[in-house]
C-alpha cells in the first residue's frame, strides 16, 4: 500500500516557487493595512492559486478561480471598499493572541491529519481509486463528452450544481435586499424614530 513515493522531479521547483509566492502574498495580506493593497493582493493570490491549479491538472478550476476569484471577487471587493473604508486601523492585541491560539490549534489538528495522508500525487490513494476513477472510466460510455469535469458537474453531480446556481441566486437576492430599492441607508439606532415609515406605501391600512 505504501509503496508509492512522490517522485523528486524538477517540476517540484516550479511548484515550490508558486507556493512560496502564495505564502509571501498571504503574509503581505496579513500585514498590509491599506485596503486597496489588500484587495489587490487578494486578486494576485487568486491568480497564483489559478496557476497552481494548472500545475495540479485542474484546468477548469484554474479557469474559474481566475475568472471568479481574481476577477469578479476583486471587483466586488474594490467597490465594497470604496463604499466603506480605505485603511484598516491597528488591531487590538488581545484579539491577536486569541486568533493565534485558535490558528495554532487548528493548524496542529490539520498537521496531525497529514501524518497518515497518502503521499502527494499517489495514484493508489483511496481518493483516486474509488468514485473519482469511476467517472474517468464511465464518462466515455455514459455521457460521451471529452471533458470529464463537465460531465460530472452537469450530469453525475448535476444536483450539486443546481444547488450552486441557487447559492448564486440567493446571493443576488441577498444583495438586492441589502442594497436594492427600499433598503435603508444603514439602519436604525435604538433611539431614532423608525426610519422609512413615512415613505413606505403602507396605504394607511390598519391590520
Amino acid at each position: 500500500m505504501e509503496d508509492f513515493q512522490t517522485p523528486l522531479q524538477p517540476i517540484i521547483l516550479l511548484d515550490l516557487a508558486i507556493l512560496s509566492l502564495l505564502i509571501a502574498t498571504a503574509f503581505a495580506m496579513m500585514r498590509v493595512r491599506r485596503l486597496f493593497a489588500v484587495v489587490m493582493l487578494s486578486g494576485i493570490f487568486s491568480f497564483l492559486a489559478a496557476l497552481f491549479f494548472v500545475s495540479l491538472d485542474a484546468v477548469d478550476v484554474a479557469f474559474t478561480e481566475a475568472a471568479v476569484g481574481a476577477g469578479i471577487s476583486t471587483v466586488l471587493m474594490l467597490t465594497g471598499m470604496l463604499l466603506t473604508a480605505r485603511r484598516e486601523k491597528p488591531a487590538v492585541p488581545g484579539h491577536k493572541n486569541i486568533a493565534m491560539v485558535i490558528c495554532l490549534v487548528t493548524g496542529a489538528a490539520l498537521f496531525y491529519a497529514t501524518i497518515d495522508m497518502p503521499a502527494f500525487g499517489d495514484p493508489n490513494a483511496p481518493a483516486n481509486i474509488h468514485i473519482g476513477q469511476e467517472f474517468v472510466e464511465r464518462t466515455p460510455q455514459d455521457i460521451e463528452i471529452p471533458n470529464i469535469v463537465t460531465a460530472v458537474l452537469a450530469s453525475y453531480r448535476g444536483f450539486d450544481t443546481l444547488g450552486e446556481v441557487l447559492v448564486v441566486f440567493a446571493a443576488g437576492v441577498g444583495v438586492m435586499l441589502l442594497l436594492g430599492a427600499g433598503s435603508l441607508r444603514g439602519g436604525r439606532k435604538v433611539k431614532d424614530d423608525r426610519p422609512g415609515d413615512d415613505e413606505t406605501e403602507h396605504d394607511g391600512r390598519e391590520f
Binding site: L76, V136, V152
Partner: peptide, 21 residues
C-alpha cells in the same frame, strides 16, 4: 481525479456568493 475539481468549482462559487453578501 476529476471529482475534487467538481466539488471545488461548486465551492468557489459559494465563496464568491458569501463575499458578495
Amino acid at each position: 481525479n476529476p471529482l475534487p475539481h467538481v466539488l471545488i468549482l461548486t465551492a468557489i462559487v459559494v465563496g464568491v456568493a458569501t463575499t458578495a453578501v
